[in-house]
């Protein structure tokens, strides 16, 4: 039996020892409407079929994260950066970076030194 095969069940079973057993109350499982709302926030137009696929997948991932949600960490500080670096400063001196044309060359549409986009508000009704 190849080591990469037949281990799927074992891998999924790894959720038990790798996530602390947890039987307490859980955050309400994700609804299809919530997924549709999040898609709008993320500016993605998901099809009905994608909503059907994503809803249980995202719910399963969040359920796996329930072990973290269940921890009492009131006295633990958050780590937002793994290395204790202080803020990095430099003098704020205006200068010409000399790359405006190179940057605008990459734009889907540019005009008169600016990025050009479709109307922001659309046509008047």
């Amino acid at each position: 039996m190849p080591a990469g095969d037949g281990s799927e069940a074992a891998l999924l079973a790894a959720r038990r020892p790798l996530a602390r057993p947890y039987d307490g109350p859980r955050m309400a499982s994700l609804s299809r409407d919530e997924v549709a709302h999040v898609a709008r926030l993320a500016r993605l137009q998901l099809s009905e079929e994608q909503l059907d696929t994503f809803t249980p997948q995202l719910a399963a991932i969040l359920e796996h994260a329930a072990d973290v949600e269940a921890l009492d960490l009131a006295d633990v500080p958050a780590t937002s950066h793994p290395y204790p670096l202080k803020n990095v400063w430099r003098p704020d001196v205006p200068r010409d970076a000399g790359i405006r044309e190179a940057v605008l060359d990459q734009a889907p549409d540019a005009e008169a030194g600016m990025f050009r986009v479709p109307p922001v508000l659309g046509e008047a009704p």
Binding site: M27, V68, T79
Partner: peptide, 14 residues
């Protein structure tokens, strides 16, 4: 519940 706690877990792991 999610992001904030996950960042604290990071401290536990360190």
């Amino acid at each position: 519940a999610y992001y904030g706690k996950a960042q604290k877990v990071r401290t536990l792991i360190i």
